[in-house]
């Protein structure tokens, strides 16, 4: 289980280097080409006007921020779900949160007017509602792993069914918007929400980090946890709620961005071992960097057009992950 010593102290600088590189790439690349010196100049003079300054300050910075936030939230919640459910296929959307959020967003797009805040607000409410439903069911049985998974999948299916039914009655335009929303989009400029989302996410990540030891025990199995005197049901519900809230925020801000939450935790386990003391901060930083970098690539390869970011995350992430899997095994 113990990772090789030479990596033990290197993980933090490596993670930060990756995130830094991704952020620089995210700020430098896009339709408008920038040289490193231009970027530094623009960042040092925030008051200057001009095309490049506007592009960096008004468009790229918020987008990089959003990508980092969403990447962090998804990677950390994915880590927690995989540990608590002891299921390598668990991803942030496994517990029905995505279904609830999607339903909320489609409701907002179909029945409510044009205010830009209705979609994230209703998506968030929908995610919370789905989470609450799963919570109600799971609480009755000490939140046993399979109860959680089944309840989550069922709530998700229920939401999807209602959503499909709604889409049948939705006029063409809201339906098209809803489908695009479901595909995930980092261009949506909800800048006002970003600081609040970031604040709550960081607190949740720190809270989950503080339970790193507990997550390690969960990975060993419930019997071990019970033997060690852990109140399994309560702790699991807490972890589930905190991680679910993270997902709800991510989905409300950017729609359903796939792949990050599934693959980043696995990649980090393969690189630096399964201890959550290191896994959670590493997942947060690498998840943020991965999505920022993928988004930079998505904006650049076909510029002036862009590629959906979910395509890039899977296209770049899956081969790398397969390589890691071949190299290290499990």
């Amino acid at each position: 289980m113990r990772p090789s010593v030479r990596h033990t102290y290197l993980w933090l600088p490596l993670c930060l280097l990756f995130l830094g590189g991704a952020v620089v790439a995210g700020l430098m690349y896009g339709t408008v080409p920038l040289t490193p010196s231009e970027l530094v100049d623009i960042l040092l003079h925030p008051q200057s006007s001009g095309l490049k300054s506007t592009v960096v300050w008004q468009l790229r910075l918020p987008r990089v921020g959003l990508a980092a936030l969403v990447g962090m939230a998804l990677a950390v919640s994915g880590t927690v779900f995989q540990a608590v459910l002891r299921n390598p296929l668990a991803d942030p959307y496994i517990l029905g949160v995505s279904g609830g959020a999607a339903l909320g967003a489609v409701l907002a797009l179909t029945f409510f007017s044009v205010q830009s805040y209705t979609v994230p607000l209703l998506a968030f409410s929908g995610a919370l509602l789905a989470l609450f439903l799963v919570y109600l069911v799971a609480r009755a049985h000490q939140a046993a792993t399979h109860t959680l998974i089944l309840a989550g999948v069922m709530v998700g299916s229920l939401c999807t069914a209602v959503l499909m039914f709604l889409l049948l009655y939705a006029p063409a335009d809201p339906m098209r918007n809803a489908l695009f929303w479901l595909a995930g989009n980092l261009a949506r400029g909800e800048e006002r929400w970003l600081p609040y989302g970031a604040g709550v996410c960081v607190i949740l990540v720190l809270l989950l980090w503080s339970r790193a030891g507990l997550l390690d025990v969960f990975t060993q199995g419930e019997d071990v946890a019970a033997d060690l005197g852990v109140d399994i049901g309560r702790e699991r519900l807490f972890l589930f709620c905190a991680a679910g809230l993270l997902v709800a925020i991510a989905v409300a801000l950017a729609g359903l961005v796939g792949f990050v939450g599934l693959v980043v935790p696995h990649a980090i386990r393969l690189l630096w071992g399964a201890g959550h003391m290191r896994l959670i901060p590493a997942a947060a930083i690498i998840g943020a960097g991965f999505l920022v970098g993928a988004d930079a690539l998505a904006r650049t390869v076909l510029a002036p057009a862009e590629v959906p970011v979910g395509v890039v995350t899977a296209l770049v992430g899956a081969p790398f992950f397969l390589y890691l899997l071949r190299l290290r095994g499990r």
């Binding site: 896009g30 339709t31 408008v32 592009v55 468009l59 044009v114 335009d173 809201p174 002036p304 057009a305």
Partner: peptide, 21 residues
């Protein structure tokens, strides 16, 4: 994305209003 619109800076932008957006 908006960056591309800013970079190309067209003389005219034509858009269609859609209900709900």
């Amino acid at each position: 994305n908006m960056e591309s619109v800013l970079a190309f800076d067209p003389d005219i932008i034509i858009a269609s209003p859609h209900p709900g957006t």
